[in-house]
Design a protein around this nucleic acid. Sequence first.
DNA 1: CTACATAGTTGCAAGATACAACCATGACTT
DNA 2: AAGTCATGGTTGTATCTTGCAACTATGTAG
Lengths: 157, 157
Amino acid sequence: MMLAVGTEHRDEVRRDEAMSGLEHEIGRLLRRVRRGLADRAAQVDPELNATAYPLLATLAEFGPHRAADLADMFALDKGAVSRVVHQLLELDLIVRTPDPKDGRASILSASEKAMKRLAELVDSRREEFGALLSDWEPDELVDLAKGLARFNASISE
Amino acid sequence: MMLAVGTEHRDEVRRDEAMSGLEHEIGRLLRRVRRGLADRAAQVDPELNATAYPLLATLAEFGPHRAADLADMFALDKGAVSRVVHQLLELDLIVRTPDPKDGRASILSASEKAMKRLAELVDSRREEFGALLSDWEPDELVDLAKGLARFNASISE
DNA sequence: CTACATAGTTGCAAGATACAACCATGACTT
DNA sequence: AAGTCATGGTTGTATCTTGCAACTATGTAG
């Protein structure tokens, strides 16, 4: 019993340490990635900002969504999304069609142009990261992505 | 031989997919975390912004640095750092002493007050995340932190 | 001694976001 | 069917943060 309590306490401590470490690594990641994200956005189109890129990439990767969905996914204000959407429309990177099931909503999807641009980016991305991540096994990358996905899911309520 | 080539190609594809997935998760994380970061900054002091927190935390965790170092670490403009530093000085969260080796520079360190506040934050952090991450084993958290640490190391040159 | 680089500050402009007010549509109640 | 409330989306506004550039002061190299 004494031992059980001790074990639980150690677990608590380990949890705290792990969370603390996680926080630190996330902080580092955040800083590093911000610039890369902005660069990538600029590669799609020079006028695109760092926020617009993940948004567009989501549409390209997971198919059409409504603006409200995007706002929810990215924990972004409706207004902010609205403006980004207009920017993307202006650049012909997304297409907007009325939602047949809801007169208020529109369905947003990545345009052909966007798909092409994004596909081209895969190459530059591979080049960019390939070297840096050369000592990673694909499985290890997958595991990290999975871990992050689960983490994201956990902290999104 | 044919088989070997096929295997390699599959690996390449998996790498690309993994990197793409990783990128997406990182994007999500970025958006999600920013708010939490701002909250945490506010917990240290209501006037602090989301940028100031990681900066202060770095000083607390890794010891004194010069402003230019911080600008470099965070890929932030000199001016932006300068303003955050002044904000932190105003709030008595950091201490500035002249660099004995360079008359132009100052050494910044976290103040006692900051250390205390940050320590207190560990508790609120535990409360905040504890519930959300309750279904994570400590080991799993550790693994994710490790994975991120390795990833950060890889992409930091 | 002169030229050039670096640390840091500040003015300025641009960009992004949150908040709130607003309109149109839909859902639900009675 | 009318009325009420919720939801999708747009836009105006205020604020905040940042990058750029100019400037001062100090250090370094030829």
